[in-house]
């Protein structure tokens, strides 16, 4: 039972991050009807931006020392006499890293939003109003471009990035067994779910959210009602890329930074289809379910079997419920 709970919680924590990745795919789909197959690679680039702003720039010779390691007097004082690996030590490590984490997140979000804008303007905009098939295929081409570009700019070597929250171990007992968690993982999950909720609220309640929904309903009608459809498109792409940057940063803190981060996009694509493409709630549930399922698989069958869980799950779901667990069947007009 305790083991089960431990793995279930681990699963929920990675599920929340899947949900954060998924929100980008769903938002772009809602606004533009294009499924971005390259979203995982957009996220990967976001992760590399975080790496650049949080590791490479602070580590550069010209960067001020406080950026790499902020050590005000009180911090040094507090650190005196602390044992290794103490919870307080982890918090202090985090405080010391705070400047570069902040720079990293801000830089990654801005740079990635710009990337989203560039992709929309140069690749998607010229095809607007034409076949969705071509637009989807362009995102497929984008996979190769982004994957190659990252290896060219940052090389394929793996590296580590600072956690966005203090990584103190958290321990508590449930019945007989001890549940063992890390502070950073908990914060990651909370951040992911908050961003997810914020986006759902935005789409539901704000004016630009209404514009997105109207565009999703009928592009030409939205256009004629005075909604600037191109603007909706570029906003959706920027939003997806910006949330993707946060997701990428979190993924990089968990898995280290390497070009293989892009592959997460494909598992999340599977999740999005399971949830039903246009349903935020469905996608959230699917993301959490797959997270838990992966953790259970890891527990029962071993780590590597977990990697195909989303793919097997999506095949099963598509066969049983073609429009996803919560998606709506579109009535076709003939």
């Amino acid at each position: 039972m305790g083991q089960f709970l431990q793995f279930a919680i681990n699963g929920l924590m990675s599920g929340a991050i899947y949900a954060l990745i998924a929100v980008g795919i769903v938002s772009v789909f809602k606004a533009t009807k294009v499924v971005n197959f390259a979203h995982g690679y957009v996220i990967m680039v976001g992760a590399y931006f975080y790496y650049t702003f949080a590791v490479l720039i602070p580590g550069a010779e010209w960067a001020p020392n406080w950026l790499a390691a902020w050590q005000p007097g009180w911090l040094v004082e507090m650190r005196e006499g602390l044992p290794m690996f103490s919870p307080m030590g982890a918090v202090l490590d985090w405080v010391q890293n705070l400047p570069r984490i902040a720079l990293g997140l801000a830089g990654a979000v801005l740079a990635n939003a710009a990337l989203g804008l560039v992709i929309e303007r140069t690749l998607m905009r010229p095809l607007m109003g034409q076949s969705v098939f071509a637009m989807i295929m362009i995102t497929v081409g984008l996979i190769s471009i982004l994957a190659g570009a990252v290896q060219l700019v940052w090389t394929a070597d793996a590296d580590f990035v600072p956690h966005i929250a203090p990584n103190t171990p958290v321990r508590f007992d449930v019945g007989e067994t001890t549940i063992f968690l890390f502070g950073a993982d908990i914060v990651n999950m909370v951040v992911a779910l908050l961003i997810f909720a914020a986006i759902v609220a935005m789409v539901r309640f704000t004016k630009s959210g209404v514009a997105i929904r109207a565009t999703a309903e009928d592009q030409s009608t939205a256009y004629s009602m005075g909604i600037s459809v191109p603007k909706v498109f570029s906003r959706a792409w920027m939003l997806a890329a910006a949330t993707g940057a946060v997701a990428g940063a979190i993924l990089a803190t968990r898995n280290g930074i390497s070009p293989s981060l892009g592959l997460f996009g494909f598992s999340v694509l599977a999740i999005v289809l399971m949830g039903g493409l246009d349903s935020y709630v469905g996608v959230l549930i699917a993301a959490l379910a797959v997270g838990v399922l992966e953790a259970m698989t890891q527990w029962q069958l071993g780590g590597d079997w977990a990697e195909i869980v989303p793919y097997v799950a999506v095949l099963i779901v598509i066969l049983i419920r073609p429009h996803g667990l919560f998606g709506q069947k579109e009535v076709e007009r003939i």
Binding site: L127, G141, S144, I145, A147, G148, Q151, A156
Partner: peptide, 15 residues
């Protein structure tokens, strides 16, 4: 990586 970029660019540019 250059080869990968070239494949991607070919897809995009032709489309």
């Amino acid at each position: 990586p250059l080869q990968e970029i070239a494949f991607g660019l070919l897809i995009v540019l032709f489309l």
